[in-house]
Design a binder for these strands. Structure first.
Lengths: 231, 231
DNA sequence: CAGTATCCTATCCGATACTG
DNA sequence: CAGTATCGGATAGGATACTG
């Protein structure tokens, strides 16, 4: 809140005092997605300054929504977790996300492309089940981006560990995915599919993994919800 | 939003850009409660300046959440209504209110007492059914408040028109309710009941109307939800 | 890795008065 | 009734550098 609160006893107003402050809902989304460490949270809100992140964490802690605990054995390292109260904020985050998915025009969302953010999200929701029972390495190349942010590697180790690298980890690559960032983002958001965009995606390497791409790609938690906003 | 948006394609972030700006959720609550006129909206957000209200209305209109229409026959008068998209924000408002009701400590909410706001809310949700089939006039007196904000009259005309006055409308009063603002607010919020607070409420006049008070009093839409926060 | 410290400015917002 | 105009101040928060 800018300066003071709303001075209303209404639960909507009281909740909004805590929740409707810059970055807070986006940060809570990261918590709902199970990030617990400062720098993991940061990756989910890269445009937020660490100072502000730190401040928000303190505010959420004071509000009883988040609790901070030192990690046993590791000095100076903390984990942040939703409290019981905080866990129930999932309903608010989901309501907001669902509404956004339905009513925000796609072209507005797609103005905010960000390859690291996309990859970070993909890492989170990737579904390893359709992949082979051995390590799979998938390299993403986003055409047209500066070389610093063009390439990413997803390293999937059974049963379900997924690592994301932005520099070549040196493993043999099973599948190369070359496409543009906008297309990949639209797929992740459920606005289109791998099959529909076939001509914009070049898949090189394992035919098997390529054919199952739509299956192992984790999509956004809101991808299943159809758009209602005008295109 | 303070300055620019979040630059994230995520629907939660896109929605939060529109919704998580000062006063916006509280204002939307007014829309969900069916207020349509500028000054009615204002009564629900009395601490919001008319300038800011006007600005928010424009923003919500631009976001496609609210539409403004002139009232036929009355020049210079507009009504604001939720669009189809806006109506679906009820889910967000309700999720937030539900969470607030469950997790905000009662003593925090009860720091924000406001008699006009309470009466305005009561007017909205009053249930005329248990009242007699003729006009009923109920006067509320809040002990300890300055005389300007101490007395209110609810005038209920069957079948369901409810008027709120802050100056004596001159009708015969059927029931006088004398209590303190905190108690009345707690009852409205569902934190206690008329029966439990019997010794703090003095009811004078119609025995019949007095006995049914808990029934005709409309409570907050969230009153049924039990608190989970520590007392 | 996990944050703090500092600085500076844009802008949001509150207050008040005013108009058709 | 239904807003607009203006103004000034607070502060939120962006940028950057730094520390244990």
């Amino acid at each position: 809140m800018t300066q003071t609160g709303y001075r209303q006893f209404c639960p909507v107003a009281m909740a909004a005092e805590i929740l409707c402050t810059r970055w807070t809902m986006v940060l809570l989304r990261e918590f709902v997605a199970d990030s617990t460490r400062f720098n993991d949270l940061r990756r989910g809100v890269p445009k937020m300054s660490p100072t502000l992140l730190s401040q928000r964490l303190k505010e959420l802690e004071a509000a009883g929504v988040v609790e901070r605990r030192g990690v046993a054995g590791e000095k100076g390292i903390s984990e942040y977790r939703l409290t019981e109260s905080g866990k129930e904020l999932r309903a608010v985050v989901e309501a907001m996300g669902l509404w956004g998915q339905r009513w925000i025009e796609a072209r507005l969302s797609l103005k905010n492309l960000d390859p690291s953010l996309l990859m970070w999200d993909m890492r989170r929701n990737l579904n390893p089940t359709p992949l082979p029972q051995r390590r799979s390495v998938i390299q993403f190349m986003f055409r047209g981006l500066p070389s610093a942010t063009r390439a990413y590697w997803l390293v999937v180790d059974p049963p379900g560990e997924v690592d994301l690298c932005s520099t070549d980890p040196g493993f043999d690559v099973d599948l190369y995915v070359s496409t543009d960032l906008r297309t990949m983002t639209a797929i992740w958001m459920g606005l289109t599919t791998v099959a529909k965009e076939g001509d914009k995606i070049v898949l090189t390497g394992s035919r098997d993994i390529a054919d199952k791409m739509q299956a192992w790609l984790g999509l956004s938690p809101f991808a299943a919800e159809p758009k209602r906003a005008a295109a």
